[in-house]
Design a protein around this nucleic acid. Structure first.
Lengths: 212, 212
DNA sequence: GAAATATATCCGACCGGTCGTTCTTATTTA
DNA sequence: TAAATAAGAACGACCGGTCGGATATATTTC
């Protein structure tokens, strides 16, 4: 970084490349995205990419990190600004559905696409994706645990199961929205979690009224 | 077919190729599976495949049809042998989870893999996959409707929503089981639907007792 | 029934094209 | 000037696909 705070040229290039890679890979997958197409979409030569990353795999790993940062900023951070407990769980899910429905990444969910792509392809990329997924699950479970500790959910709540259920509605939305009616899909994904939380949460004031 | 009922040589080859293709594509995807690898795994020459299908896309479409037939036989048919209503819905979900957990196809769920793979790849294959998915959704909704008509589910049931929720637990299981603990994942997928049905179904005798 | 013919099936060799990657060279930046 | 950054050309490997010919199977002919 320069003295005046501006990013060096190389750093700017790297960020631009990774942002484009996240967007394109959300549609085509990380392996499905060819370096030639990525370079062309940026008006950059393919070999120039190798000045910043030693191999395609290194660029893929960097792309995952960039996608995690975006996820953190667009999904996690807004949820953490709401009050702890059931409200925060609901806000997290809503932010996720908004993310899909708003087509922030034109290709859909980066993680859903790549995690299916690398499901049966062992290697560093798959390991990294598994780490990210495990961290996401742990985060979800932590939010549920907090809601239980606050008394907003019954103490008998199966934390891991509820986290699974909430995540399932999101995953299914990411998949179904591209093949079936997106509006209907997103409505179901939102209604499903709302019903789930309403059935468990004794205090109806913690959740929005109406059909969602 | 011959007069004695045995399949002709070509027909046997075609079936063997498609069976292998379904298995391999469940792991690597339909486009990710190269014709060279497919041919090699069968001890057959690559060019020989083109004697049966005019292009890779034609073989992909035939592979989808074969996967549909397997799904019909292994998931749909067993469920249809149980009595109509909530029991049948539950049996369908259980068969699906068993299918994943039993690793019938070593690569996971053929449809989950390929539908994500072709999510952003328009063409005949994607169209066919969307058709299959729509048919699957319609089938799920029909089962739910039947349960409502039988009085086993409340008449106020949101049929499409409940079908979405049941499918979501299956989709999530297909995805998470490969990156997180499979046993835990399948247990959650089964428990989730069981809880869902128990909460709606006034007659507890229609569902198995115990924690799943 | 045997020979001859037609057809279905399959293979090895090869093509053009795309992939990730490397090497050499030029240009910018500090 | 030295280092960082970029481009261009070219590579070997692999891809889907084609082609002529070999082999097995079915059908016809005698």
């Amino acid at each position: 970084m320069n003295v005046d705070g501006r990013l060096a040229r190389g750093q700017r290039t790297r960020t631009a490349v990774l942002d484009a890679a996240v967007g394109l890979a959300s549609a085509s997958g990380l392996d499905g995205l060819s370096l030639g197409h990525l370079a062309e979409s940026l008006g950059v030569s393919k070999s120039g990419l190798f000045a910043h990353w030693r191999s395609k795999e290194e660029l893929q790993l960097a792309t995952i990190d960039r996608a995690v940062a975006q996820w953190q900023e667009l999904i996690i951070a807004p949820a953490l600004r709401t009050s702890r407990g059931v409200r925060r769980i609901h806000a997290l899910h809503e932010a996720r559905i908004e993310f899909y429905a708003g087509r922030v990444l034109p290709g859909g969910c980066f993680f859903a696409t790549t995690e299916f792509e690398f499901n049966a392809r062992p290697g560093a990329v798959r390991d990294r994706l598994a780490e990210v997924f495990a961290a996401w699950t742990a985060f979800l479970e932590r939010l549920v645990t907090e809601a239980v500790e606050l008394g907003e959910l019954p103490p008998t709540t199966d934390v891991a199961l509820l986290a699974y259920e909430i995540d399932a509605y999101g995953i299914a939305a990411a998949m179904r929205s591209r093949l079936l009616d997106p509006e209907v899909t997103y409505r179901h994904a939102r209604l499903g979690v709302l019903n789930l939380l309403r059935a468990l949460c004794p205090d109806p004031a913690l959740l929005p009224e109406g059909p969602a």
